[in-house]
Write a protein that binds this DNA or RNA. Structure first.
Lengths: 341, 341
DNA sequence: TTAAAATACGGAAACGTTTGCGATATTATT
DNA sequence: AATAATATCGCAAACGTTTCCGTATTTTAA
């Protein structure tokens, strides 16, 4: 595979030195307008493309951002990356995308590989297994630009973008209560996850505010394997203490719940009302009955992550990413799954 | 941001020359086992990470593969990338991922950027707008490794991975006919797309084989905007010549059809039977009624693309990617949406 | 015992950029 | 008119690897 002409060849063609050509292409003040024109014209003509690795080596930056997330087949993460790409592409940045598949070991391997400077920054959402955060701490201590979104790592003092997990969960639970629910289940992934902690807290506080007490058996922690989740949820739905309402803290568990319900004779919303954090709006409306959702601003979260990073990476003397938690509110859309009958 | 030690510093620490250390780490036969041990040990101790750009510059390869696809929020493409990542990660390759959002201009920009060698190969599925393929032809003429999947570009003589589009569509249409359908609609994206051409051909041939003639007004070409698609489909479903069966050539149009049907009093499968190319199996079972699907082997397609590329890129003297069309069969799963009543 | 071959390592060039510094020619200043 | 300032460009180093080549030492062959 032959890459096209390089700087030296372009310079030879112009009877100029490589340094002059380089400066001309980078619009340096040291070069006259006349030669700039000539250089740019010839560069176009020969379709000169600067070698990205030579440039990266020299400038010690890659114009690349790495995105590390737990899974690819999730409309939430897909939208976040779309948002990131939207702004990074405008600034000529490239995206390395990695999926950990909820596996910490894979996450560690990826993060360690990224320490060699292949990317200028990392924006990530941690895996549900992540409890040991030494790999992330090391990254940050080295001064590597690191941003978290959604599933954050609060111990690491950097910028994190989330939605208002607590409030949304509180409001969602409150909505169920207002619709007459008294025994409300809560579905979550690992309890270590920042989002489950916050959403669980909102759920509990809403119960308490209504004078309800949580039922431990109705709080089920799920895993990666869908079929197992469906069965666990079905068992819970059919138990003695069966719930009349359910809050799912993530999209996939709402789908698992619909599957579980299909295996019973439970009726939604008559016997069970459901609300879930959910990003795939098109699907939410197609479920039967349509699902009341807490919609995270996925695309915006991605955009904001990228904007901050681009600023940090392109402006000359930027400080470290501040230790702040930026919350962008979700929106609750009431559909049939929580309509009182 | 401080990257760790480099080769020179590591060599100094060991009182060896950089060349020796480099060879030791690359397990060269010129280095004694004793010093290899010492070098590897010290490298581990100092956490030496080779600079990827220096290596890329020198070796003229990036250990990176670019994936270019039309959209990210599609379970099919997500699964394909998962498949690609599964094998590339095992070989230490990285993935640059780009979404064209079905926009040719964006596709061209991305492809042209990729010509500078930032990636060692491209695996792509073209946008629905792509009719001018000069950017892809140029890429291939330069000897750049290029693989197509799903939405291929048949004019370019390289390897393409698809599913058995024609046969699956033929069988799917035949299934509708067997269930009693006589007026069968066909939904597609751009007619330029390889997949619509093949799937449309299968549809037509199945009609012909059954002695049915296609109705032009039942063949609707959709676009990017979901709401427009829904309305176009609804209009078609409510027209004089309303269909009693429907084949959707892509997943998103099946969802649009369910939305359209919700706005009418049409009953599935009583009034209308539906089959679609569809990858999100979990969702297919949750639709009401559950959707009969033609499931493409998305993950496998990704794996096969990656395997071929890895072989081409890592083995010493590999020939160019052969001009071949590799078909991996889809699987039809019959669900309620096509059950005769 | 001596020449040849194998072993183990170092020096330096090369990959393609960017940039500090020096050099020349041109213009402005006094 | 002599000097200083400015404009424009080239030389060479540097980024961190890999690898060609040379060299010194040791081993093998005759």
């Amino acid at each position: 595979m032959s890459t096209g002409v390089n700087l030296k060849e372009l310079a030879a063609e112009l009877k100029l030195s490589p340094s002059t050509v380089s400066r001309a292409l980078n619009d340096s003040y040291e070069i006259s307008e006349a030669t700039k024109k000539k250089v740019v014209f010839m560069a176009e003509k020969l379709n000169y493309q600067p070698n990205p690795f030579a440039r990266s080596l020299r400038e010690n930056k890659s114009k690349t951002i790495a995105v590390v997330m737990p899974e690819r087949m999730s409309s939430f993460f897909a939208k976040v990356i779309d948002g990131i790409e939207e702004v990074t592409q405008q600034h000529g940045y490239h995206l390395l995308v990695y999926s950990t598949h909820e596996d910490v070991e894979r996450e560690k391997k990826i993060v360690n590989l990224l320490m060699n400077g292949r990317a200028d920054a990392i924006v990530m959402s941690v895996s549900s297994q992540t409890s040991d955060i030494s790999h992330l701490a090391r990254l940050h201590e080295r001064g590597f630009p690191l941003i978290f979104f959604d599933r954050i790592c609060s111990e690491i003092p950097t910028t994190k973008f989330i939605t208002n997990d607590y409030e949304s969960s509180y409001e969602g639970t409150k909505h169920l209560i207002q619709q007459g629910c008294r025994k409300i289940a809560f579905l979550m992934l690992s309890k270590e996850l920042s989002i489950t902690k916050e959403r669980y807290r909102g759920y509990l506080d809403a119960l308490k505010a209504a004078g309800l007490s949580p039922t431990p058996s109705l709080q089920v922690t799920c895993a990666h394997e869908e079929e197992n989740n469906i069965e666990a949820i079905r068992a819970m739905l059919m138990s003695e203490d069966r719930p009349d309402g359910l809050v799912s803290s993530v999209e996939k568990l709402a789908l698992a719940t619909y599957h579980a319900v299909k295996r019973t004779n439970i009726k939604i919303p008559e016997d069970l009302k459901i609300i879930s954090f959910f990003s795939n709006l098109s699907i939410a409306g197609l479920l039967t009955p349509s699902l009341t959702t807490i919609t995270q601003p996925a695309f915006t979260i991605g955009e904001e992550c990228a904007k901050l990073l681009i600023k940090k990476l392109t402006k000359p003397r930027q400080p470290d990413l501040p230790n702040q938690l930026i919350s962008i509110p979700s929106k609750i859309t009431i559909r049939s799954s929580t309509i009182a009958v």
